[in-house]
């Protein structure tokens, strides 16, 4: 009984443990695995990150010509950091801030992009094979 009383007196003067999160800013620890940011200048579109990605959240769209696009889906990513480690040029950086929730309108149509990426990659591979074949025949 006495012990209980002492504990409750102690707790009266202790700092509250509650984080008043939305009103109080929260700073994650260094090295938290958060959002992935991409630097266009350093990227050579080697597709290593796309292959290393576990959940298929990175798709690289190579259109005909030189237009290329790097797409990352924040709601498909599992934030394991494998793409960052696999990048040989340091074009990908994992920030320490987490991604914020999104609503319906902001969402990417991921199955459409998946299909498109598959189609474009097939075409790109075919072109590459043709070019190699041509070179050999020459």
């Amino acid at each position: 009984m006495l012990k209980m009383f002492i504990t409750s007196i102690k707790n009266l003067f202790r700092k509250p443990v509650t984080q008043l999160y939305p009103y109080e800013k929260y700073e994650p620890f260094d090295g938290y695995r958060g959002k992935i940011s991409w630097e266009k200048g350093k990227c050579t579109f080697c597709m290593k990150c796309g292959r290393a990605c576990t959940s298929g959240a990175i798709k690289i769209l190579i259109y005909s010509g030189e237009t290329k696009e790097w797409v990352w889906n924040p709601i498909q990513c599992i934030y394991c950091g494998e793409c960052v480690r696999s990048c040989p040029f340091g074009a990908l950086i994992q920030e320490k801030y987490y991604a914020s929730p999104i609503t319906k309108g902001e969402k990417l149509d991921w199955s459409e992009i998946e299909k498109k990426a598959g189609r474009l990659e097939d075409r790109w591979r075919r072109q590459l094979r043709d070019r190699r074949g041509k070179r050999k025949s020459e």
Binding site: I75, P101, I102
Partner: peptide
């Protein structure tokens, strides 16, 4: 089934694997 949206309409998507409590609170505020 590849996500909840295939079955019922979804209004807010909270990313993260696993989603942090802060992210969940953000999502609920939204």
């Amino acid at each position: 089934e590849n996500g909840v949206e295939r079955v019922i309409p979804v209004d807010v998507y909270v990313p993260g694997c696993a989603a942090r409590p802060q992210q969940i609170i953000d999502g609920v505020v939204k």
